[in-house]
Simulated assay, not measured.
Amino acid sequence: MDTPKSKKLDIIIPAFRGHSQNFLMVLDGISEDDALKRIEERTNHIIWMVGNFLDMRYAMGSVLGLQEEFEFKDFFFQGKALDESLTYPSLKELKNSFHQISPLVYNKLLEVSDEELNKAFPMGMNIDFFPETGLNFIGMCIGREDYLSGQIGLMRKILGYEGMKYDFDKDLKY
C-alpha cells in the first residue's frame, strides 16, 4: 500500500481504494437501459447514483486543490435532485470520468499534509461536534460513497442481477 504523507489518512486511503473497487464491481454487467430504471418511480436510478458518487470524487479533488471540473456537474452537483426531463450521461461516460478523476484524487490524498487537512472548509452545517475542515469533508465524501455503493448494490438485486462479486483487482492503484 502507498503511504500517505498524513497519518490522518491511514483509514481514508484503504477506504478510497476499496470504494474504487466496489464502484467497478457493483456496476459490473449493468446495462445502460437498466441503469436508467427507477423502482415505482420512487427511487433514483443507478445513473444518478453513479453521478453522485463521482460528484463526491470531484469534491474531494477540489478540497485537495485539484482544478478538474466534473464534465457532468450540472446533473449531479451537491446531490441535485433527479430530473426526469434531462437526458443523463451514459454509464460508459460516467465510468470514463471515474477513471479520469480517481487516480488524481488518490495521488493528492497521498501528498496532502496535516496542515492542509486541518484548514477550515466551511460547509454550512453548523454542528458543534463537527469541525468544518478539509479532513472532515473528505470523511463525509467517503461516507457518501459507501452509502451510494450500497444503494447501487440494492438496485442490482431489485433489477434481477446477481449480488456484487468481490473480485478485487490488485493492479488498480486508486
Results as ranks from 00 to 15, higher is better:
residue 86 L to H: 02
residue 148 L to S: 02
residue 148 L to N: 02
residue 60 M to P: 07
residue 119 K to N: 08
residue 168 F to A: 12
residue 116 E to G: 02
residue 167 D to F: 12
residue 132 E to D: 09
residue 3 T to S: 09
residue 58 Y to R: 01
residue 69 E to L: 05
residue 120 A to I: 07
residue 112 V to F: 06
residue 39 I to K: 03
residue 81 A to P: 02
residue 125 M to Y: 15
residue 146 D to F: 14
residue 164 M to K: 11
residue 45 H to Q: 07
residue 99 H to N: 14
residue 138 I to Q: 03
residue 15 A to N: 11
residue 146 D to L: 12
residue 108 K to V: 06
residue 122 P to L: 11
residue 61 G to F: 07
residue 118 N to L: 12
residue 148 L to Y: 12
residue 8 K to L: 15
residue 25 M to C: 13
residue 119 K to D: 04
residue 28 D to G: 05
residue 137 F to D: 04
residue 96 N to T: 13
residue 64 L to Q: 01
residue 78 Q to E: 14
residue 95 K to E: 12
residue 31 S to H: 06
residue 143 G to A: 14
residue 148 L to Q: 11
residue 94 L to A: 05
residue 39 I to A: 06
residue 22 N to D: 10
residue 86 L to A: 05
residue 168 F to K: 12
residue 113 S to M: 00
residue 45 H to W: 01
residue 47 I to S: 11
residue 54 L to R: 00
residue 174 Y to H: 10
residue 53 F to V: 01
residue 1 M to E: 13
residue 61 G to M: 00
residue 164 M to I: 11
residue 148 L to E: 08
residue 51 G to W: 01
residue 158 I to A: 07
residue 9 L to W: 03
residue 71 E to D: 09
residue 124 G to Q: 04
residue 138 I to F: 03
residue 23 F to Q: 04
residue 99 H to S: 12
residue 2 D to T: 11
residue 162 E to N: 13
residue 105 V to Q: 06
residue 8 K to D: 09
residue 144 R to T: 14
residue 70 F to V: 01
residue 43 T to H: 07
residue 126 N to I: 08
residue 174 Y to M: 01
residue 22 N to H: 11
residue 118 N to A: 15
residue 14 P to R: 07
residue 158 I to E: 09
residue 173 K to Q: 14
residue 165 K to E: 14
residue 52 N to C: 10
residue 11 I to Y: 12
residue 95 K to N: 07
residue 98 F to K: 06
residue 80 K to A: 11
residue 103 P to K: 01
residue 149 S to I: 13
residue 154 L to G: 12
residue 81 A to F: 10
residue 120 A to M: 01
residue 144 R to P: 03
residue 15 A to H: 11
residue 102 S to K: 08
residue 46 I to K: 08
residue 20 S to Y: 08
residue 159 L to S: 03
residue 1 M to D: 11
residue 46 I to S: 08
residue 8 K to I: 07
residue 85 S to V: 10
residue 28 D to P: 07
residue 77 F to L: 15
residue 98 F to I: 08
residue 64 L to C: 05
residue 73 K to V: 12
residue 148 L to V: 08
residue 117 L to T: 01
residue 139 G to M: 13
residue 155 M to F: 09
residue 140 M to G: 13
residue 69 E to D: 09
residue 30 I to E: 05
residue 16 F to R: 02
residue 50 V to D: 04
residue 94 L to Y: 05
residue 112 V to Y: 00
residue 6 S to W: 01
residue 124 G to R: 08
residue 106 Y to V: 09
residue 26 V to F: 09
residue 120 A to E: 14
residue 42 R to S: 14
residue 5 K to W: 02
residue 61 G to T: 03
residue 121 F to V: 06
residue 119 K to H: 08
residue 161 Y to E: 03
residue 124 G to S: 06
residue 153 G to S: 10
residue 14 P to G: 05
residue 33 D to M: 12
residue 141 C to G: 04
residue 61 G to I: 06
residue 85 S to F: 07
residue 123 M to A: 10
residue 157 K to N: 12
residue 48 W to G: 02
residue 42 R to W: 08
residue 23 F to P: 09
residue 53 F to C: 05
residue 68 E to V: 07
residue 90 S to W: 09
residue 112 V to Q: 04
residue 167 D to V: 14
residue 163 G to T: 07
residue 97 S to V: 03
residue 122 P to R: 14
residue 95 K to Y: 00
residue 58 Y to N: 05
residue 92 K to C: 09
residue 28 D to A: 13
residue 56 M to F: 15
residue 31 S to Q: 05
residue 108 K to N: 04
residue 61 G to P: 10
